[in-house]
């Protein structure tokens, strides 16, 4: 017969300290992780308001000076415009394409749909440098010169997988009979999409758009290969950073960080509302 199971409790103290030790060391690591993620960023934000001398922050030097100087920088304004244009069109293109693909591949595991999924996930999985380079070489061969169009294509290729997955996940959560019921009631395929599927996908589409825009707005590595004379904001920043530190960059960076934070929280709220407690990437 098996060993008798002991009812005797280990000393409460030993149990508590053992479990506490594990929990607190996990907590310490987590704290360190968040510190590593946020300390550099917060530092930049602080430095956008204060001056620095030999690594020490001069706390009495608070000013909005660097923000004021940003406003007069025309290059940055142009870069911002480029980024917004690129973001808008990338979102538009990927949204249409990803929706079509999601409808087509939903609950269809043929060799073709699997191949399609594999292909659109490649730019997402591969190092960005490879996506950027392959597009650069391709555009060179077909004679398309570098400019905002090439950047839009590059960004669309990059974010397509994520947008597609977001829409597909929602689509798969919908009941299969929804479409059948609509057709049974006499709706054409387009009417089914228009009246049944799209309303149910609205949240997923909004989430996907925000996500795609955020990714496009920040994309640097692919863009560096594809950009022409109209630099996007991250490319302009990269050029400025190579030169060195300036408080002006700190101010700009702080604004961008604020913007992406708000965007992320917005996305999270949409995702939260759409899928309850489920946390999607």
């Amino acid at each position: 017969m098996g060993r008798p199971v002991s009812l005797v409790r280990r000393s409460l103290l030993a149990r508590l300290t053992g479990r506490r030790l594990v929990a607190s060391s996990l907590g310490a690591v987590t704290g360190f992780v968040f510190l590593a993620l946020y300390a550099p960023i917060l530092l930049v934000a602080v430095l956008s308001f204060f001056r620095l001398r030999r690594g020490k922050i001069l706390w009495d030097s608070f000013s909005f000076q660097w923000y004021a100087e940003l406003l007069s920088n025309r290059q940055l304004a142009e870069a911002l415009t480029s980024s917004l244009v690129v973001g808008f069109f990338s979102v538009l293109v990927t949204l249409v394409l990803a929706t079509l693909m999601a409808f087509y591949t939903d609950r269809q595991d043929t060799r073709w749909t699997l191949a399609l999924r594999f292909v659109i996930f490649l730019p997402f999985l591969l190092p960005p440098i490879i996506t950027g380079l392959s597009l650069l070489v391709f555009f060179k061969e077909i004679g398309l010169s570098r400019g905002l169009i090439t950047v839009i294509i590059g960004h669309s290729v990059f974010v397509l997988a994520l947008v597609y997955q977001t829409i597909l996940t929602r689509l798969q959560a919908l009941s299969r009979t929804l479409v059948e019921a609509s057709q049974d009631l006499g709706a054409t395929r387009w009417q089914t999409v228009r009246f049944v599927l799209l309303p149910n996908l609205r949240m997923a589409l909004v989430t996907a758009s925000l996500l795609a825009f955020a990714l496009s707005f920040d994309e640097t590595m692919i863009t560096l290969f594809l950009v022409g004379d109209n630099a996007t904001l991250p490319v302009r920043l990269y050029a400025m950073m190579r030169v060195g530190f300036t408080p002006e960059i700190n101010a700009l960076v702080t604004l961008i960080l604020l913007f992406s934070t708000l965007l992320t929280i917005g996305i999270a709220r949409f995702v939260g509302r759409d899928a309850g407690a489920q946390v999607g990437l």
Partner: peptide, 23 residues
Amino acid sequence: MVLALIVPLLMSYIIKIYAMRGL
């Protein structure tokens, strides 16, 4: 906490590197 992990994920890549350089 999850939100606090996603926020840096969507922050500009080069900005994070730049911030690290300062640190």
